[in-house]
């Protein structure tokens, strides 16, 4: 089991970091070095001032009010998923450093309970989002439009979320952030090691598998449609451009 962890949760992390940041950097480089469209592609109505257009860009990207209007169900799941993913991302910050303020207010046990609640909610919402998207791609025009990339990404995402939830719901009461932090900080400081609590428990399987999916997901990220996470800002800005 230790080998599996070393592959997925140490060397895999390093490889993923290289591929992910390299890939995203390369993607941004490619976009920024390709000349802008000479034709004006903006649409109306659009704010007259630059600040107004910037505000509209943020609204269009983070809220997508037009999409909400035309397909509220899809929008609800998508919005909830992205919000939960953001929450999960922030929550994973505990792997680096305990949050400020909150633990003092809640106490250590209170903090763990809080994390359990928020993490559980985020985990469930993300799972619901992924399952909704998978279901949606199994019929009608959605199925016809889908390509293997779509299913691959959903499969990897499902793996990440299910194994994350597994750690949260099965081991959440016994193994807390501090243990994972020891491992993660050791990787970040290039002195990789696994705390004994991890190795002595079956949580290592969950962590290893969670990391396996996360590694694959993030390595594929820059080469997939998921680059909408950065590209949407630029394309939504064009919508309101001159």
């Amino acid at each position: 089991m230790e080998t599996y962890l070393w592959i997925t949760s140490v060397w895999g992390v390093y490889l993923t970091a290289i591929v992910f940041f390299g890939g995203m950097g390369w993607r941004i480089y490619e976009w920024s070095t390709t000349p802008k469209s000479a034709v004006r592609l903006g649409m109306f109505p659009k704010p007259k001032s630059g600040a107004g257009r910037f505000a509209k860009l943020l609204g269009d990207t983070f809220i997508a009010p037009q999409s909400a209007k035309i397909e509220p169900t899809m929008w609800t799941f998508a919005f909830a998923f992205h919000l939960a993913a953001l929450g999960a991302f922030v929550g994973h910050g505990r792997l680096i450093k305990e949050f400020p303020v909150l633990p003092e207010m809640l106490g250590e046990a209170g903090m763990n309970t809080f994390a359990a609640w928020t993490g559980s909610i985020a985990g469930i919402v993300m799972l619901a989002g992924v399952l909704f998207w998978i279901a949606r791609r199994t019929y009608g025009p959605f199925k016809n439009l889908s390509v293997p990339e779509d299913y691959l990404l959903l499969f990897l995402l499902l793996g990440v979320v299910v194994m994350g939830d597994h750690m949260r719901f099965v081991y959440g009461g016994t193994i807390h952030a501090g243990v994972y932090r020891d491992w993660f900080m050791s990787v970040l400081t290039f002195k990789p090691a696994f705390p004994s609590e991890l190795l002595s428990s079956n949580v290592s399987v969950s962590l290893g598998t969670h990391m396996l999916f996360a590694d694959l997901f993030l390595m594929y990220f820059p080469f997939s449609k998921l680059v909408h996470s950065i590209g949407a800002f630029s394309s939504n800005l064009v919508r309101s451009s001159e």
Binding site: W31, K36, L41, S67, M74, D150, K225, H228, S235
Partner: peptide, 22 residues
């Protein structure tokens, strides 16, 4: 015909099909 916008349109579409009913 390649330009930044076309490249992004090619790269970022999630095939969510929200455009279907539009």
């Amino acid at each position: 015909k390649m330009n930044r916008q076309l490249k992004q349109y090619m790269d970022i579409c999630a095939r969510c099909a929200i455009c279907k009913d539009a």
